[in-house]
Write a protein that binds this DNA or RNA. Structure first.
Lengths: 151, 151
DNA sequence: TCTGTAATTAAGTAATCACTTAATCAAGGG
DNA sequence: CCCTTGATTAAGTGATTACTTAATTACAGA
């Protein structure tokens, strides 16, 4: 997860994205990359280091020259991770499963449509001292799904 | 493509990634998010702005409260884009299809295993003045696929 | 071993960024 | 209309970053 962020940071840069796209097509050496992208060799070298340390590139020395290759699996995995993220399911309230004291609160409509209120949700939506302020507006928010037809 | 970079930059941050993960599960209001992630509301608000402007979040006002939702399609599309990137095919040399003057060069082994040398590759690998320096090492690199068995 | 070149690293700089606090805007409730 | 509270914005700060030039390391040919 920390490596995911590093990899995302690595490709979230215009120049480095161009580097990756080019290296996917051509097995350029560093100097060729620099010429092709019109960037100094030092700059390219530093970008390559970032991409390499993020696990997106692997280098190979051939004679005088250093050639980098994109780790396509790593790149694919990164994409898959984002798609997997997009598939994270919503946690909805199921008050019948848990004793949810938020049901008592006037402005908390999180449960009227039927939903649970796990401890972490209760805490996050109403704060650590939610119990102390009965029926007030303080600390409340309609923190769950949009309530169709209500309000 | 520019929006891709903006979206990548947006999620390539630890706090914002946590925001996205949380909003995928719970429809928290801004204050709830801040409490849950133990970040000031101002900071969260700024992160939400970044994510919103990157097209990853959509906001909805409900009474007093502002609730943000992850645009799952945008997130999925971003992941798909990375996977598509990983599928970019390598350009290999096909000298029989093009008149490739690099074949004459001693140190350029790009073609010995059979490969084309399109103008852009030629330029990138050997520089704009490649023709002027016949048979020299200058400006050359073995810029294509690793040559098995050669050298 | 000496020389020329590819690549990396060092050092410095301007810009960007994540965060802070304080001020401001917005939306009810009394 | 005022007051409270949620949310955003403004302004400032320290850290990070992308780039530059210069120095250094690594490699191979003569």
């Amino acid at each position: 997860m920390k490596s995911t962020i590093a990899a995302l940071k690595a490709i979230a840069d215009g120049t480095r994205l161009r580097v990756v796209k080019l290296l996917l097509q051509y097995n350029y050496c560093v100097g060729a990359l620099a010429r092709r992208l019109d960037v100094t060799e030092a700059a390219i070298s530093q970008h390559l280091k970032v991409l390499r340390e993020a696990g997106l590139l692997v280098g190979e020395k051939r004679g005088h020259f250093m050639h980098y290759d994109v780790d396509r699996n790593a790149l694919r995995a990164l994409g898959a991770e984002l798609e997997k993220l997009a598939a994270i399911e919503r946690q909805v309230c199921k008050p019948e499963e848990e004793d949810c004291e938020q049901q008592r609160r006037g402005r908390c409509r999180a449960h009227e449509a039927g939903g649970k209120c796990p401890e972490e949700v209760r805490f996050a939506c109403h704060g650590p001292n939610a119990d102390e302020k009965e029926n007030g507006r303080n600390g409340h928010c309609e923190c769950q799904e949009p309530q169709k037809g209500i309000r």
